[in-house]
Write a protein that binds this DNA or RNA. Structure first.
Length: 817
RNA sequence: GCCGGGGUGGCGGAACGGUAGACGCGGCGGCCUCAAAAGCCGCUGUCCGCAAGGACGUGCGGGUUCGAUUCCCGCCCCCGGUACCA
């Protein structure tokens, strides 16, 4: 079916025509030489998609269109805009889908990629398809593996046994970021705890730098906030609590705790260890051993969702052991409880029930002593606590510190503890090391060879890539190892160092490693012998503008920053932040919810594009609301932009020659000013509104437009409706693409100025009239005219005029009383 | 709980502290048509009024100001993120 045609504007015909011409003329792709010599490079990047079998839905299209508008605008400004597109095709998404439909991912991915490519072309995206990436292509993942090797050699990749999140449905380990609320982000199944040997990237070494750099990159605020929170720096102190025996003697052991409130140490009436804490056995006495062991086993078995529920009733058992509170000298009992997490801090806490809600709940349940050590002015030292008090105040029941204000208490107590040898100021981060191994099939094999004699050895770079073999039975199992561990002929190999028999690592790497560096690859895809060419990288990177969804605020965006920093430290890059500017686009809401497959409210774009054309659909999506806020998808609203583009076409193709009307010309220049400011700031909806208003002025009262009036609108609509703009531009006698040949219109400030303005007249701030006033009329003349306005005069009659406020060419306000 | 972002007509949304509701959807009326669709023109925050005009209006309550959707204080609600993080 062809798009609806009216007045000779046939979207389907001109869109097909221009998509073909862009290909034939290589309008949007660059040769190696062009990449190497671009004078004014602008790297416009959008997050690449995972090529699902369903294709792109309207939510995806919204993201890509907004980024495309941005790129096309900068190109019209004269920049050499590089806008590549690729496919993040490895990973559990693809593999699970392949398992579901019973097709091998190696067969599935190419057809999905083909479909995505078709949709993106049909949308009119300005992509350089000569510089595409597919993360499943050995020519790509060769370098993904190379990056792993670089980290391994730098000591930033290590294998260790660790409690990990295990998804019993996907049968794999997940990163903390993929199981952040205790459920697998892929399938929603509750994750379990397992101890498995895993590969980790030591991202925690970079925690402070990742945090500090947030101060000097230009990113959407919400993204930086989310990332800052995720890194989760907190300042406090590590305190040492000596373990004592029944007679009160110290035996050399001590429990280390981390606290952000060392100043409340006088109120620490008991200790709590995480059930997994290594000292549990040592502090437990014989009388309590059986209950402690039982509790610990129970805690380990409990999945993380159930265990980490905030509203869960506190549980725990007494070990029989005691510590000495180093501040008070008193012996306090040591408990174990699953509300203390081994992964954070030291895995042990000093419990201050008077001033911590969790400790209060626990102490209340188990009838442990609660002591007030912080008091607000309305309290005294003995005011009973009915809940934990966490507000401001001064220290009480704290020996020499009584009376110290909370503003300085932390520092003073930390110093004191340090001086006496039982405390140190410390910083803690919530960020964990990045668990990078996956016991799955569909990913790049981790390029490591395990040798009985030499240990873990990196695959030599000249042997990369380690090709993922085609395995028909790639279903994961419960064994805790990858399906590749069933392929003996693949994993059996020789040690690169001693040539002895050795075994390949059978885990594959996390998808987020694939996407951790893809932006480096795009400009350098012409080279097979290097991941990214140094000279090209210097010219094109960091990315000028990166656009994507905020759901990646703590995953992809953090990992790719980390990888970039590491590559800089290893001398491969000369910058450490990959994206100068990041903008998170908003979400498309349909039927009151984010458009997503799981919500069942997905709208397929293809039929809409078929009916109205890509230009209309693009313009409609960008008109819905502020790009960074997203928009509410209401199908009937497309009629507005559809009619607008038709009227624009009609006006442009029937325009006459001749001098522009001065009033119309003023409107045009005001529009140029507005649109030129708003498009780069992603103010797409208001830019389109301004263009609509301008066209309405040009066409007012059915007048026939002058070519000079309508002509500036053609490049201005081009980012939104590129095909339409190209066609009109060509009909105006130009051979080149508008994106190469047109100059963005320049606003002539002199032409913007209004000659007559409507001045509002207020009396006591209430609008009582308005009068037309010629520009540059002196204030007293305006005020006199305002005063003589019939309606205004009624309000000024018989009252005392106290003041007159005059805002030049805007309003007069008479203050009376 | 904490961290973000919001609450403006029937709807999506506009508004450097200066005429609230631009632009668009929807609705109403008209032109064109045998008719319909499309297109074009006009009206469209609520209430009072024939009109001129007036009152009320940007989640709620205060405040600053000649003037507040906008700034400040205190609440309520919605959306997103995050969470026994000590």
């Amino acid at each position: 079916m062809a798009t609806e045609e009216r007045d000779g504007y046939s979207p389907s015909d001109i869109e097909e025509k221009w998509q073909r011409l862009w290909d034939e003329r290589a309008t949007n792709s660059y040769t190696l030489q062009e990449i190497q010599s671009a004078e004014d490079p602008f790297y416009n990047l959008v997050m690449f998609p995972y090529p699902s079998a369903e294709g792109l839905h309207v939510g995806n299209i919204y993201a890509y269109t907004g980024a495309d508008v941005h790129g096309r605008f900068h190109r019209l400004q004269g920049k050499t805009v590089f806008a590549p597109m690729g496919f993040d095709a490895f990973g559990i998404h693809s593999e699970n889908f392949a398992l579901k439909v019973g097709t091998h991912p190696m067969d599935l991915i190419p057809s999905n990629v083909k479909n995505f490519t078709r949709q993106l072309r049909r949308l009119g995206g300005m992509y350089d398809w000569d510089h595409s990436v597919d993360t499943t292509d050995p020519a790509y993942y060769k370098w993904t593996q190379w990056i792993f090797v670089q980290l391994f050699k730098a000591g930033l990749a290590e294998r260790k046994e660790a409690p990990v999140n295990w998804c019993p449905s996907c049968m794999t380990v997940l990163a903390n970021e993929q199981a952040s609320s205790g459920a697998c982000e892929r399938c929603g199944t509750a994750v379990e705890q397992r101890r498995i040997a895993q590969w980790f990237f030591k991202i925690t070494k970079y925690a402070q730098r990742l945090l500090d750099n947030l101060d000097h990159i230009d990113w959407s605020k919400k993204t930086m906030k989310a990332q800052g929170n995720w890194i989760g720096r907190s300042e406090g102190a590590q305190l040492h609590f000596p373990v004592i025996d029944a007679s009160g003697d110290e035996g050399g052991l001590s429990v280390e705790v981390y606290t952000t409130r060392p100043d409340t140490v006088f109120g620490a009436t008991y200790m709590v260890l995480s059930p997994e804490h290594p000292l549990v056995d040592a502090v437990t006495d014989d009388e309590h051993r059986a209950t402690v062991v039982a509790y610990r086993e129970e805690a380990t078995r409990t999945d993380l969702v159930a265990r980490q529920r905030v509203d869960k009733t506190k549980t725990g058992v007494f070990t029989g052991g005691r510590c000495r509170n180093p501040a008070t000298g008193e012996a306090i009992p040591i408990w174990i409880a699953d509300y203390v997490l081994m992964e954070y801090g030291t895995g042990a806490i000093m419990a201050v029930p008077g001033h911590d809600g969790r400790d209060f709940a626990f102490a209340t349940k188990f009838e442990l002593p609660i002591v007030r050590v912080m008091a607000a002015p309305e309290h005294d030292a003995d005011t009973p606590l009915h809940e934990a008090y966490v507000g401001p105040g001064t220290m009480v029941n704290s020996g020499e510190f009584d009376g110290t204000d909370v503003s300085e208490s932390v520092a003073k107590v930390t110093d004191w503890a340090h001086g006496r040898g039982w405390g140190d100021a410390t910083v803690n981060y919530r960020l964990h090391d990045w668990c990078i191994s996956r016991q799955r099939y569909w990913g790049p094999p981790i390029p490591i060879i395990h040798c009985g004699a030499c240990g873990a050895v990196a695959v030599p770079e000249e042997d990369l890539p380690v090709i993922l073999p085609r395995v028909e039975d790639f279903k994961p199992d419960d064994s805790g190892v990858s399906p590749l561990a069933r392929v003996e002929e693949w994993y059996q190999t020789q040690c690169p160092e001693c040539s002895g028999p050795a075994r390949r690592e059978t885990d594959v790497s996390d998808t987020f490693l694939d996407s951790g560096w893809y932006f480096l690859r795009y400009p350098s895809t012409d080279f097979d012998d290097r991941p990214f060419d140094p000279e090209i990288t210097r010219r094109w990177l960091p990315v000028d503008t990166y656009i994507g969804g905020n759901e990646h605020a703590v995953l992809h965006l953090l990992y790719s920053r980390f990888i970039t920093m590491v590559l800089k430290d290893l001398g491969h890059l000369d910058f450490e932040e990959p994206y100068d500017v990041f903008r998170a686009h908003g979400l498309i809401i349909a039927e009151g919810a984010k458009m997503s497959k799981s919500k069942g409210n997905v709208v397929i774009p293809d039929p809409i594009i078929e009916q109205f054309g890509a230009d209309t659909f693009r313009t409609y999506l960008m008109f819905l609301g502020p790009y960074e806020d997203g928009g509410d998808y209401q199908p009937q609203g497309i009629q507005g932009p559809f009619g607008f583009l038709h009227r624009l076409w009609d006006t442009a193709t029937s325009a006459e020659s001749g001098e522009p009307d001065p009033d119309v010309e003023r409107k045009v220049h005001q529009t140029i000013k507005q649109v030129t400011e708003q498009i780069p700031a992603l103010g797409y909806n208001t830019s389109i509104a301004a263009l609509m208003e301008c066209l309405n002025t040009i066409r007012a009262d059915g007048r026939v437009a002058k070519r000079a009036e309508i002509e500036p609108l053609v490049p201005m609509i081009a980012p939104f409706a590129p095909h339409l703009a190209e066609e009109i531009w060509q009909r105006y006698g130009n051979d080149e693409s508008i994106f190469d040949g047109a100059n963005w219109p320049v606003c002539d400030e002199a032409k913007v100025v209004e000659h007559t303005v409507e001045v509002a007249i207020q009396v006591n701030g209430k609008l009582r009239g308005q009068i037309p006033v010629a520009k540059d009329t002196p204030e007293d003349a305006v005020v006199a005219a305002a005063r003589s306005d019939e309606n205004v005069a009624r309000y000024l009659d018989g009252v005392e005029e106290r003041r007159v406020i005059y805002v030049k060419e805007r309003l007069v306000n008479f203050v009376v009383g």
